[in-house]
Design a protein around this nucleic acid. Structure first.
Lengths: 326, 326
DNA sequence: TTGAAAGCGCTAACAA
DNA sequence: TTGTTAGCGCTTTCAA
């Protein structure tokens, strides 16, 4: 910045001003400075700015898994809700526990304008750290009961229950359940709670052998269905807590000439764009992914501008989309 | 940090050391410091560290569109290739041109350890800025001819040619082409160049009315196919430069009882996981997305550790995966 | 409209 | 093994 100042024949201070508040600098001076900047290819140091001013233009995001397209949509919503002038610093953490905490610490080190966390529960120390950090926290996705600041999401438990009730209502009685590891993934656990709840309410005794945990991937869905059909041939519906598995299972049925929903009904979760396109089209739970990100973004933006309350819990709900596989 | 020092009864410097090089600090001192840190909930300032040390733990990433799952996979690869201790600062830029340049500038302001850019051509000024910034640049995706530092990718043009040659070889003669706006998207343009090249080489006169530009989305694929069939009923194959469109078109055919590949053959691009699962399964071009990210990550990591050459061009190639739709 | 001095929170280089 | 001094590149406050 000093070089620029010299070249433009002004003091360092004037350059700084020309960059932040151009209106305070005389037009000709401003032009000279601008020229110097382009000639020298000057790019200011965001770090120094933030250190000196205390203001930050970073929003930190902690995601369970970068691969999941659902999160990508949320990010786009977040980016667009926040608007210009804020950068996103994104970390994906696979697995859970300590690594999650570590990364959160590292992100907090950037004193971000806000920290957006997708995915339910934090350890006690984590929560403590988050609260004390004084950084606005957005909990995205699962709607936590007691948000630290802002929570935007929907109830995974209610969604799990509604999905299951739908299957029961359509007359299915022997229902399988496929999810990620419930231990590592609170969303999976919540959906499972809803699943069990609905079964019990209908007077059906849950059968653990019909509940499968697997990893992400279309093929895992096919395998899961195969396994379930083998364990209990009388199974008449499967609730996959992710569209990926559900679609994989659906294509498996097509290959094997298993009639859907005649022989077995398939229920997905997340209503990916593809769900409406397949033949038969997939019944699923629609979650407002983009909107979640966007809502969090705009709320954050207005809070950063000092216009919004510090605590808020926004339930964006979900929607059962009944299509042909159930 | 001073508070921590006071509480632990040592100087600020010792705390700094305990954080960076614990081996230089006596065990009991270290413990006291650690206690003070947890009690105070201290989180260091990454900015101050960067400013004082000149070292950065940030890798900036510039993506054309956050939504695209293909990029998400690259990011995961990149994150894992880089290993621990580096944060990713990600920006998605839809559209192109000036906004792209602006965001790149903003990212450069963080003096990142490296800047990863996905997607071909930069404006002249941009290139100038990148070169002068002295930040290692990774150009990911399209393999540029003259990389600034590191380029990791494959040739979109060659991929487009190979895909088209495959269709020609299978006997298709009236071939449609669907892509994003070639003006805004250099990858689309490159694939198109390959497409035209192959047609000419086979002695077929290209017909612009069989070339369609559209936006992303499964449904856009269905619409594109419908439109093409209407414009030229004798069309016998369509090269979709994205699996999303190809799958959308495939499901459209299923709904409308159009035989694939009997009535019309469908060729995709990117070989999404889903491509192998559908019935009929989709012929596509496989691009090593994860590997591209990972390769860039490890290369960058070793360059940051001072172990790798500054310039490199890595062609990871691509693979035609012949399945049932052609 | 412009400039000078002090300092943001940390680390590098040196000294004890 | 620990402490001291200077300064990273900018902004804030105050003065000209």
């Amino acid at each position: 910045m000093e070089h620029v100042a010299q070249r433009a024949g002004v003091s360092l201070m004037t350059v700084s001003r020309a960059l932040r508040e151009p209106s305070l600098v005389a037009q000709p001076t401003r032009d000279r400075i601008q020229d110097a900047i382009t000639e020298l290819g000057y790019v200011g140091s965001a770090f120094a700015v933030q250190l000196a001013s205390g203001r930050t233009r970073l929003v930190a995001v902690l995601l369970p898994d970068l691969r999941n397209p659902a999160f990508a949509v949320e990010m786009q919503g977040l980016a667009e809700g926040l608007g210009e002038g804020l950068e996103l610093i994104v970390s994906g953490v696979r697995g859970s526990g300590t690594r999650h905490d570590q990364v959160a610490r590292a992100l907090l080190g950037y004193k971000p304008a806000a920290l957006v966390i997708h995915g339910g529960r934090h350890s006690h120390e984590m929560r403590e750290l988050l609260v004390r950090s004084n950084v606005p926290i957005v909990e995205l996705g699962s709607l936590v009961a007691r948000p630290i600041n802002i929570a935007v999401g929907y109830s995974n438990r209610a969604a799990g229950r509604v999905a299951t009730e739908h299957l029961l209502q359509r007359g299915y009685r022997t229902i399988g359940f496929v999810s990620q590891s419930r231990k590592d993934n609170s969303r999976a656990d919540d959906r499972w709670l809803g699943f069990r709840e609905a079964l019990r309410a209908a007077g059906i005794t849950p059968r653990p052998e019909l509940e499968l945990e697997t990893s992400l991937g279309y093929e895992r869905g096919a395998e899961a269905l195969k396994e379930l059909l083998c364990r209990e041939p009388k199974i008449d519906a499967v609730f996959f807590t992710g569209d990926g598995w559900a679609l994989g299972a659906l294509f498996y049925c097509q290959r094997e000439n298993i009639s859907v929903p005649g022989r077995v009904a398939i229920m997905g979760f997340d209503d990916q764009e593809l769900a409406s396109q397949t033949v038969p089209s997939l019944t699923s739970i629609q979650v407002p992914r983009y909107r979640m990100g966007w809502e969090a973004g705009t709320l954050l933006r207005s809070q950063l501008d000092g216009k919004a309350p510090e605590r808020k819990r926004i339930d964006l709900g979900f929607k059962l989309v009944h299509r042909q596989t159930t």
